[in-house]
Computed example of a mutant assay.
Amino acid sequence: MAAISWEEPYCAEGNNCFRIGTDSEGNAYIAVAGQEDQPLTDTREALRNLILEIKAGKADHLL
């Protein structure tokens, strides 16, 4: 497994903090801050699409 380069945590007010990371093999990762040893893994394109859909409000019904 390639080394993951993690971004600074993203923390919404009153919510858990999440971290996004990438590796040199083109994979993307998202994890709860402090639990980076258990990330969700997919391609960078898939993570990009997930973030765009969330920003577009398509996951609001999950909140």
Rank of each mutant, 00 (worst) to 15 (best):
E8G: 00
E8V: 03
S5C: 01
A2H: 08
E53C: 06
V32S: 05
N49M: 11
G57C: 06
N27E: 07
E36T: 12
A46R: 10
A31H: 05
N49T: 11
R48M: 03
I51V: 15
D37E: 09
D42R: 04
E8W: 03
E36G: 09
I20T: 06
A33N: 02
I20Q: 00
R48I: 08
E13G: 07
R19Y: 09
A33I: 06
N27Y: 02
R19P: 01
Y29K: 08
A3H: 01
I4D: 02
G26F: 04
A59K: 13
A59T: 11
T22C: 06
C17F: 01
M1P: 05
Y29W: 06
A59P: 00
R48N: 15
E53M: 09
N15F: 14
E25W: 05
L63K: 15
F18I: 13
I51G: 04
I4F: 04
R19M: 09
L50F: 15
I4H: 02
I30F: 03
G26I: 01
E36L: 05
D37S: 13
G57T: 06
R19W: 06
A31E: 09
I20S: 03
M1G: 14
E7C: 13
G26P: 01
D42N: 00
G57E: 05
G34F: 05
A33R: 07
R48W: 01
L40Q: 11
A46D: 15
D37Y: 04
N27Q: 09
S24N: 15
E45I: 08
Y29Q: 02
Q38P: 00
Y10V: 14
E7K: 10
D37C: 06
F18W: 08
T22Y: 08
V32L: 11
N16P: 03
